[in-house]
Nucleic acid binder design. Sequence first.
DNA 1: CGGCTTAGGTTGTATATACAAGCTAGAGGA
DNA 2: TCCTCTAGCTTGTATATACAACCTAAGCCG
Lengths: 231, 231
Amino acid sequence: MKYLRVKEAVLQELGKATPGFPLSENSLARRFGVSRMTARRALQELQQEGYLSRRQGKGSFPTERRFSQGFLRVRPFYEFARAQGATPRTQVLAAELRPTPPEVGQKLGVPEALYVERLRFLDDEPVQREVRYLHPAHCQDLLRHDLTRESIHDLLVHTLGLPLTRVWQRLEAVALPDPLATLLEQLPNAPALRLERLTYTFETPITWVEYLMRADRYYLEDTFIPQGERP
Amino acid sequence: MKYLRVKEAVLQELGKATPGFPLSENSLARRFGVSRMTARRALQELQQEGYLSRRQGKGSFPTERRFSQGFLRVRPFYEFARAQGATPRTQVLAAELRPTPPEVGQKLGVPEALYVERLRFLDDEPVQREVRYLHPAHCQDLLRHDLTRESIHDLLVHTLGLPLTRVWQRLEAVALPDPLATLLEQLPNAPALRLERLTYTFETPITWVEYLMRADRYYLEDTFIPQGERP
DNA sequence: CGGCTTAGGTTGTATATACAAGCTAGAGGA
DNA sequence: TCCTCTAGCTTGTATATACAACCTAAGCCG
C-alpha cells in the first residue's frame, strides 16, 4: 500500500503548516521513490477527502479544514409548511439573468445563469431566504411561470422534464450578518441553518441553491429504523 | 474524454434494468475499445457517485438505491474522526446516576437515569459536547466500561445486547450561551449545530442524547440519488 | 457423497510512457 | 517600457503491463 504511506506522510505535513506547498505529483514521487501514478492517487484521494485542492497547471494546495458527516434530506417548503399547520407565502425578490459568482459558476460550469431570490413566510413571518442559480440552457422557460406559487423543484421535474438524478448538499449552522438578519427580522449574528444544494440531471449540474433558515423557526426532525445495528 | 462516454453508456443501461450484470472492467474495455484502466475509471466514478457497488473478486453491480428519504444519519464519533483523518480524544466530564430533567424524564419514562457528559476533541480542539441520559434498568453495567475509549452506541448494541430498532432525532442551529461557548473555546453566541436524539429498543426508549457541535468545525454533507423524482 | 484443490474470472495495486491542457515566469522584440 | 511568445512547470487523460488478492465453480480424490 505505497499510496497509503504517501497519504499519511502528506497528512502529517498538512498539520504542520509546512512551507513546502504547493505539492506536485512528480516531486512527491521522487521523494517517496514511487511512480507518478501512485503519488497521483494519494493526492487525488486527499483531494476527494477535502484536504487538498488541485488545479491543472498550478499544483496541489492545502484547503482550510472542516469536518463533515452524515446523511440528510430536506422537504420542499410548501410540504414543510403544511406539516407545521402554518400558512406559507412567497415573495420573489429577483428573477433574472445574472453573472454567476465564481464558486457557483465553477459548480454549474457557466459564466451566467438564471438568478432567483425568494423570501419565504410562515404566518406572515419571514423564515427562509432562498438564493438560486439555474443552468440557462436547460431552464430558460422557467421565468414564464409564477414563482410565487410553484415549487421550482416541481417545475424542473414535471414541467421542464428534467430528471433530477443526483443531489449534493451541505448543511451547517451560521450566524446571520446584518443585511440578512434584518431581512429575516432577526438580530445581527442570530443563528441560522444554511443548506447548500447542487442538483444534477445525470452528469449535468442544473441548479445550485442556498437556503438560510431562521434557527428559531426551523429544525429538521426524523424517525427511522437503523440498518445493520442488531447485536 | 473516453471515460465519460463509457460512464454515460453504463448510466443509460442502469436505467433499463438490463440483465447484463455484473459488469467487469475487461468486458467494458472490449465493448468500447478502450483500455482496462479507462473502463476502470468510469466504473470507479460511478461507484463513488452511488450508482455502482464494486467488490474485489466479484464484479460491479448496480446499487439498490434505498437512500432513505427524509433521513438524517450521523456516524459514531470515532468513525467520523477516522474518516476525517483527525485524531480523536474524549474527556468524560460526568458519569453518574442523576435525576432527569422533566423533558428528558418524560421521554425516557424514568425519574432518574445514568448521566454521561463528554467533551470530544479532534486534533486537541474541542469540537463537540455530548450530554446523555440512559435508562437505568437497561444500562447499569455501562459505567463499568471505559467511556473515554468506547462508543456508547457500540457498547449498547454489542456488549449489552440491546438492539437499537428505532431512532428519533432533531437537528437545529443554536447560539452557544456562555459556559458552553467557553467549554468549546468559542465566543459567546457563536453558532453551533444541536442534535437531539432518542433511541429505542422496540418500544422501550433506551437513551436520550444531545450533541452540540461547533459550526466552524462541523457540517453535514452528502450526495444521494433521489427516489421517484423522474418526470 | 463430501471435502479439497485448482483454474480462471473479478477488482486492487504499482509501474512506465506519452501526449494534451492549463499556468507562469522570463526571454526577447517592438 | 510594454507586449508577446515560449520553455518548462503543473495536472488531466489514455494506454500497456504485471502481479496480488479475492471469489466461484468445476473437477478431482478419498
